[in-house]
Design a protein around this nucleic acid. Structure first.
Length: 852
RNA sequence: GCCCGAGUGGCGGAAUGGUAGACGCAGUGGAUUCAAAAUCCACCGGUAGUGAUACCGUGCCGGUUCGAGUCCGGCUUCGGGCACCA
């Protein structure tokens, strides 16, 4: 073995793996299967360190599972539809298709040198007609089973560009390109009936044992099952046809604190009133000019308008409440109408104070009967409170108890009914854009909306489109829309909306099991490979992507594309953190910051200086890597300088995988130095010839401990812990005076333990130390528990919880003996200073605490 | 605004309720060298002290416990999501 040359070693071993076809996955009934999947990338143009980290983690799992006798599937593809391709076409000409496929080619070239154990023969992009044609087939089957329907929904409309805007394209209520005030526009759109499955999607979360608790909690809250009361307020002076207003509330127990009834600007009553009342019309118009995003709506100033209408309180016909239209009430949730209880809801209170509406306390804290002034009293529903004048006779009760009592009371009295509702809304999939999967339906004057015939799939996107005009190019294409009605054969028009890109990513994991099948899935393959045993991706996908995929698995099962066993497609989920890097900046002349690249900057004593002029620049530590901030570290440069193993080793070390990791140049150099050291140590061992001796046993004991600890680290996604153990074991091996045979054995184990992380270096060492075949085929080493036992242990001694001494005793010494020895320690006697121990706590194998 | 996380030395971080700071980086001192690079060895939270040692210390305030970075309550800062970014 010569000097460590990463480039040479990596080239050679990648060729060896290719030649042996190590990573091509085939069904094999003789082995347990294991499906590892990292969330596939959007082809933005270049890979970044976040990708390297994500795929390296998946690769560690994949390679580890291979060596523990599993038949591993580890595929890769491209989430290739979406807005950036169209934006690029608008900004700099060109075609979204060319832009996308070029990016894929570049990124694949950047990924290949990483030496990932990917079965590239299964690669596809979601913009391949072969893929989205099968997606269209799925859509037709969903339509057939009633899982898709059409209804009206609002979109952000840019009245100047005459185009639909995504939420991220709305800045402060204005279109990002035109700057025009955004309007809401109602369009007929396609929806998946995910709400039909809300209850089941919620209850099934319990069974997701290997998902992070936080993700399960987020999904539960998102689905938002609530039990509440639906009832009507009788109108006193309502217009014709509006005899009452039906409201839904999750806090019916606060009905005696009702201050006013609020309705959405899109409520039927509000729409009726605007025809004859110009003030209301103006207010409703203003409400409809807000962006559709919930965050924007919630952050907007709370406003309302009194309709002049009055309703009767259901428990007291003499009690009148005003009806207001308010901009914070959503038409999509409940009935689009609420009653407000300002004393126990901060938003209602702010609104009541602004418009001088009554604030009526309905309960007090047990120890404080101060009426609410400007902070609403909102205790946890599980906290007992004292009720004031409760109509069902409650005195002290929790919110939960009061809600149930009230629902029962209202049902018995006949003026309301208990209703279970979900926050989860149906999934709108229509997009008025070109670069997506066309929705395969036809609009016929005679037959209405008609599904396309499956034999006509794929309905492919036309290539001859331009992006020099706003709006959807499919809409203005001269011929693409024209077709024959699949039902009557008369001339008809295609649907020009395409699908939400979340549809593409909601079933790609199933397609990987048979990527070239002429149906969406192949039952034999999908039954063998599903579920995904380990799914890895960013926490930003905790809700939408993962919930939609769970819904799709159910819908695909209903339509016969997935077996029942795959209804929860991801057995285990891991969410990894981002890769961050310091930002170097200065305030520019115009007040805007100027950003510098890491290579423009020299670091000294924790300060940064611009190389060009030697003056200091500001450092912003740990910022998310972003092109506009010039703090993106290109993995290609790192691989060129140090090799793939170094990049892989670095992204796995230091930070726990679920947390963000800070990329530092010094850290990368340190990783490279360590790998060179391992290579040097292995070379020395390969050339040594020392006899077996009394140091062998200690080395082998450490080897077994290392095997145990590193294995546990990998199994528990504690890759940083595994790396730390490998550093420790490397140091032990370097210093050991054991004989050559023991050292060779230890070094081969070291290579194996490193092989999931730095596979090229591991193969190199393995081949030089007499390893059998490729290390990628070698069975994972087993730790021998008998070899790891320590005879003695060191116990700290605390006095009143403060560490004062320690003792080393035989592992299995009795508690009494341990106590005796501890109390006789000189340091203990000195610390006690004559005081008599009240109690001595001996936790075997852990600690001794003397209480005085 | 609402939902979900995270906060520990100069830095990244470790720690089944049981010795806070493993391991790594940076730094300091030394060995080797004509010299340097590379490598190897030692030290490395703060304050006081020659030292043994003592006190302080895991974002802030409070609580539970023999014992809290870890559990509970309240805050604060930062990050993720909020349904058309992916």
């Amino acid at each position: 073995m010569s000097r460590y040359s990463a480039a040479e070693i990596e080239r050679n071993w990648q060729a060896a793996w290719d030649q042996a076809g190590v990573f091509a996955a085939k069904r094999d009934a003789s082995k347990p299967k294991y499906y590892v999947l990292e969330m596939f990338p959007y082809p933005s143009g270049r890979i970044h360190m976040g990708h390297v980290r994500n795929y390296t983690m998946g690769d560690v799992i994949a390679r580890y599972k291979m060596s523990t006798g599993h038949n591993v599937l580890h595929p890769m593809g491209w989430d290739a539809f979406g807005m950036p391709a169209e934006n690029a076409a608008m900004a700099s000409g060109g075609h979204p298709k060319d832009w996308t496929y070029n990016n894929i080619a570049v990124m694949k070239n950047q990924m290949k040198p990483l030496g990932l154990s990917i079965d590239w023969s299964r690669e596809f992009a979601t913009c391949d007609p072969e893929y989205y044609g099968q997606q269209q087939a799925l859509f037709l089957d969903f339509l057939d089973k009633g899982l898709v329907y059409r209804k009206n929904a609002v979109v952000n409309w840019d009245p100047v560009d005459m185009t639909v805007l995504a939420n991220e394209q709305v800045e402060n209520g204005r279109g990002w390109r035109s700057g025009a005030l955004v309007e809401r526009k109602e369009l007929t759109q396609w929806f998946f009936k995910i709400s039909d499955h809300a209850d089941e999607l919620l209850s099934a979360i319990d069974g997701l044992d290997n998902w992070p608790a936080k993700v399960k909690l987020m999904q539960s809250n998102w689905i938002g099952k609530s039990r509440g009361l639906e009832f009507a307020f009788e109108m006193k002076n309502g217009p014709d046809g509006f005899d009452d207003i039906t409201v839904y509330t999750t806090r019916p127990d606060t009905l005696m604190g009702a201050s006013f009834v609020g309705i959405s600007a899109d409520h039927a009553l509000a729409r009726h009133l605007e025809a004859t009342n110009s003030e209301i019309a103006a207010f409703n118009k203003e409400c409809r000019q807000m962006s559709t995003s919930e965050a924007d709506m919630e952050k907007a100033e709370k406003k309302g308008i009194d309709t002049g209408l009055r309703v009767k309180h259901p428990l007291n016909p003499d009690w009148e409440l005003p009806v207001w239209i308010a901009n914070f009430i959503l038409m999509d949730y409940g009935t689009g109408a609420i009653f407000a209880c300002p004393a126990h809801d901060q938003r209602d209170l702010d609104f009541a104070r602004k418009y001088d509406l009554p604030v009526i306390d309905t309960f007090y804290a047990l120890d404080n009967e101060t009426p609410v002034t400007d902070t609403a009293f909102v205790p946890a529903k599980t906290e007992p409170v004292k009720w004031i004048n409760h109509f069902a006779g409650l005195d002290v009760a929790t919110g939960e108890e009061a809600i149930n009592t009230t629902v029962d009371f209202a049902e018995a009295a006949g003026w309301g009914k208990g209703v279970t509702k979900f926050r989860l809304r149906d999934w709108g999939l229509s997009r008025q854009r070109y670069w997506g999967c066309p929705i395969p339906v036809v609009h016929c004057d005679a037959c209405g909306v008609v599904p396309e015939k499956k034999e006509n799939l794929p309905i492919a996107l036309p290539d001859d489109v331009t992006f020099d005009m706003p709006g959807n190019p499919l809409d203005r294409h001269p011929t693409w829309r024209d077709c024959a009605c699949p039902s009557c054969g008369a001339p008809a028009k295609r649907e020009t909306d395409t699908m939400d890109t979340f549809v593409d990513s909601s079933w790609y994991f199933a397609r990987f099991t048979a990527p070239r099948a002429d149906t969406p899935t192949n039952m034999d393959d999908v039954s063998y490979w599903m579920n995904v045993d380990q799914y890895i991706g960013g926490i930003e996908h905790a809700i939408l992507h993962l919930l939609y995929s769970r819904f799709f698995a159910r819908a695909m099962q209903i339509t016969g594309h997935l077996p029942k066993t795959a209804i929860e497609p991801f057995n285990a989920l891991f969410t990894q953190g981002m890769v961050t890097h310091a930002i170097y900046k200065r305030d520019g002349d115009n007040g805007r910051p100027v950003y510098y690249y890491p290579e423009q900057v020299e670091l000294r004593d924790g300060k940064a200086f611009l190389i060009a002029d030697g003056d200091e620049v500001d450092i912003v530590p740990s910022a998310k890597m972003s092109k506009s901030k010039n703090n993106v570290v290109d993995p290609v440069a790192i691989i060129d300088a140090f090799g793939a193993d170094t990049a892989r080793w670095f992204v796995l070390s230091d930070s726990p995988p679920e947390r963000d990791v800070e990329w530092t140049a010094a850290g990368a150099e340190a990783a490279a130095k360590h790998l060179a050291r391992v290579h040097r140590i292995a070379s020395d061992i390969a050339q040594s010839d020392d006899c077996a001796n009394e140091h062998d046993a200690a080395l082998l004991k450490d080897m077994h401990k290392a095997i145990h600890d590193v294995t546990q680290g990998i199994e528990s996604f504690g890759f940083n812990a595994s790396v730390a153990k490998l550093y420790g074991f490397t140091n032990t091996l370097a210093k050991s005076k054991a004989g050559t045979d023991a050292k060779r054995q230890a070094a081969r184990s070291l290579a194996q333990l490193m092989s999931p992380m730095t596979p090229h270096l591991a193969e190199e060492i393995w081949s030089h130390l007499g390893g059998d075949g490729l290390i990628v085929h070698a069975p994972w080493p087993k730790a021998d528990a008998a070899m790891m036992v320590d005879d003695e242990i060191t116990l700290p001694i605390q006095i009143n919880g403060k560490r004062r001494a320690e003792i080393t005793v035989p592992k299995d010494m009795s508690k009494d003996d341990v106590e005796k020895i501890a109390l006789s320690q000189e340091a203990v006697i000195r610390s006690l200073d004559g005081a008599v121990p009240k109690k001595v706590i001996v936790v075997p194998g852990r600690i001794i605490n003397v209480v005085v």
